[in-house]
C-alpha cells in the first residue's frame, strides 16, 4: 500500500528522532506534504533529509519548542501560509525524566517542565492548528501505555500521558461535528533514542534491555516504524469511523 495520505498536509512535532522521525518518513512515503519540527535543529534537519529522500519530495523543517506558545503560533501560521490548511496533525514531542526520580524526589521544575512539554505544549499545537483543519482531517497524539498503566519512578510522565489521552478524547467529542477525528496512539516499550537513554543510565543495561523485551509476549521491543504505521493508519481514510480511540501498540504488554 502506498499513497494513502497522498496530497495531505501533515504537521509533525517531535520529529527529531524516534517515533516522530519514523512518522515523518512514513507520512512522506505515503504521499503527504510534510512539515517536521523538533527543538533540536540538527535532528530536525536530519529528519527532513531522510523524509525527503524516502519520498522524493520537498520536506520543510522548523526548530520548535512546543512549550513556547508564541513559537507554536508562528510555525502553525507559517504552515497555513504555505499550504492553506493542515490535514494531519501528528503530535509526538514529549520528554521523560531519565534519572527516574520517585514522587518525593521530583522537583517543582522537573514536574512543570514535563507537563509543559507533554501536555501544555500539545494543547498549544492543537489549539493553534484546529481552526485550520478542514472536514476529514485527523489529529494523532502520541500517548503511551502509561495512559493506562504506571511504571515505578515515572510518575510525572505517567500523569501527563493519562492527561493526554483524556485531552484527546475531549478533543474528539468537540471536533466530531466538524468531521475532524482525534485519536491517541499508545505505544509500549519502543526501541528509540529515548529508550537508549534509559538503557545507558541503567546499572546493568543488558538486564534492563531483557526486561524491556520481556515486557511484551512477542519478546522484543517495538520499532519506531511499527508505531509510525499506526499513525499513518489513523491519519488515513482507512480510519474514518475511528475517533476518540486509543490505539495500543505494545506487543501485548497490557493484554496481561
Amino acid at each position: 500500500m502506498s499513497g494513502r495520505v497522498a496530497g495531505k498536509v501533515a504537521l509533525i512535532t517531535g520529529a527529531g528522532s524516534g517515533i516522530g522521525r519514523a512518522t515523518a518518513i512514513r507520512l512522506a512515503e505515503e504521499g503527504a506534504e510534510v512539515v517536521v519540527t523538533s527543538q533540536t535543529a540538527a535532528n530536525v534537519e536530519e529528519t527532513r533529509r531522510l523524509a525527503a529522500e524516502a519520498s522524493a519530495r520537498e520536506v520543510i523543517a522548523r526548530t520548535l519548542d512546543i512549550a513556547d506558545r508564541s513559537s507554536v503560533d508562528l510555525v502553525v501560521a507559517e504552515v497555513v501560509e504555505q499550504f492553506g490548511h493542515i490535514d494531519i496533525l501528528s503530535n509526538n514531542a514529549g520528554i521523560e525524566l531519565v534519572h527516574g526520580p520517585s514522587v518525593v524526589e521530583t522537583t517543582d521544575e522537573e514536574w512543570e517542565r514535563v507537563f509543559r512539554v507533554n501536555m501544555t505544549g500539545t494543547f498549544y499545537v492543537c489549539r493553534a492548528a484546529v481552526p485550520h483543519m478542514p472536514s476529514g482531517s485527523s489529529i494523532v497524539n502520541m500517548a503511551s501505555i502509561n495512559s493506562f498503566i504506571a511504571w515505578e519512578n515515572d510518575a510525572v510522565y505517567t500523569a501527563t500521558k493519562g492527561a493526554l489521552l483524556q485531552f484527546t478524547r475531549s478533543l474528539a467529542l468537540e471536533l466530531a461535528p466538524k468531521a475532524i477525528r482525534a485519536n491517541a496512539v499508545c505505544p509500549g516499550v519502543i526501541d528509540t533514542p529515548l529508550t537508549d537513554l534509559f538503557l545507558d543510565a541503567a546499572d546493568d543495561p543488558g538486564a534492563l534491555r531483557r526486561d524491556y523485551e520481556a515486557a511484551s509476549p512477542l519478546l522484543r521491543m517495538g520499532t519506531a516504524r511499527e508505531v509510525a504505521n499506526c499513525v499513518v493508519f489513523l491519519a488515513s481514510d482507512e480510519a474514518t469511523f475511528i475517533t476518540g480511540s486509543a490505539l495500543i501498540v505494545d506487543g501485548g504488554t497490557t493484554a496481561r
Binding site: 511499527e226 504505521n229 499506526c230 501498540v249 501485548g252 497490557t254
Partner: peptide, 27 residues
Amino acid sequence: VVRFLLSDEASYLTGSIVVADGGLTAG
C-alpha cells in the same frame, strides 16, 4: 480496520482491541 490489523503494518499489535465507534465510548 480489520485489514490493517491483519496486515504486517500492525506487526507490533497483539492483544489490542481497536475501537471504531465514531466516538461513542470516548465520552
